[in-house]
Simulated scan of single mutants.
Amino acid sequence: MSTAKPKHWLMKSEPETFSIDDLQRKGQEPWDGVRNYQARNFMRDGMRPGDKVFFYHSNCAVPGIVGLAEVATDAYPDPSQFNPKSDYFDPTSKPEEPRWMLVEVKFVKKLSRTISLDELKTMDALADMALVRKGNRLSVMPVSASEWRTIVALE
């Protein structure tokens, strides 16, 4: 068993596709469809079961952090890459050499309010956070321990 401290992450989802309410209802779910190499590498090389996750709603009226989740599994090949009927099908990816990975996340808590991106951008303690930097569109990103504590305290 690893004695490493849990890491912290932020994972974005469009609420029309998969929301915090969906995760709460299901309990645990594969985080599939990630098709960015850097985000894939975070899941494949960095995430471990027990890591803490901010669940972030994007592309909606008020984008922001809406809940807490936890990484439930180590990374494994995303089956959607092999399914021609999937929106995430990748004809260049082969089962013997999968290109895309996923982790499963489990529901921890729905926040009492949305901590909006606009609010996060006003906080000096979060000035270096990847989420608030202009042009950052990653769906999976690391969060420092101090950023995690700052945001959790906002609720």
Rank of each mutant, 00 (worst) to 15 (best):
K121A: 12
P77L: 06
Y37C: 05
W31A: 10
K12G: 09
P84E: 12
P98W: 03
D22A: 08
S112V: 07
P30I: 09
D74Q: 12
M129C: 00
V108W: 02
G135A: 09
K26A: 04
K85H: 05
V140P: 06
H8T: 13
L131Q: 08
F54P: 02
S139T: 13
Y56P: 02
L138Y: 01
Y88K: 13
F107Y: 15
M101K: 04
D90K: 07
S2Q: 03
S13E: 03
D78R: 02
D45P: 00
N83D: 15
K7S: 13
P79Y: 12
F89N: 08
N36T: 08
Q38S: 10
R40Q: 09
P30Q: 09
K85F: 00
T73I: 11
D45A: 02
D128E: 14
D118Q: 15
G50V: 05
L68C: 06
F82E: 07
L126F: 04
R40Y: 02
V34I: 15
F18I: 08
K5E: 14
G50S: 05
P98R: 04
M47I: 05
R137Q: 08
I115M: 01
W9Y: 14
S19G: 08
S116T: 15
P6E: 01
L10G: 10
M47D: 02
A4I: 06
D124W: 00
W148Q: 06
L102W: 01
V105R: 03
P30H: 07
R149V: 11
P49V: 12
Q81C: 07
Y37W: 13
D90L: 06
W9M: 09
A39G: 05
F89I: 03
K52Y: 07
L68P: 03
P49E: 11
L111K: 02
V143I: 15
R25M: 12
E97W: 01
W31S: 08
P30V: 11
L126S: 03
W100Y: 12
F42A: 01
D118R: 14
L111V: 03
W9P: 06
S2T: 13
K134Q: 15
G135H: 07
N36L: 09
D90P: 05
Q38N: 09
P63Y: 10
K12Q: 09
G27T: 09
M43V: 05
K7L: 14
N136P: 00
R48Y: 05
A125M: 00
S80E: 14
A153M: 08
E70N: 09
M1L: 06
G46A: 12
V62C: 05
V108G: 02
T73W: 09
K5D: 12
N41M: 12
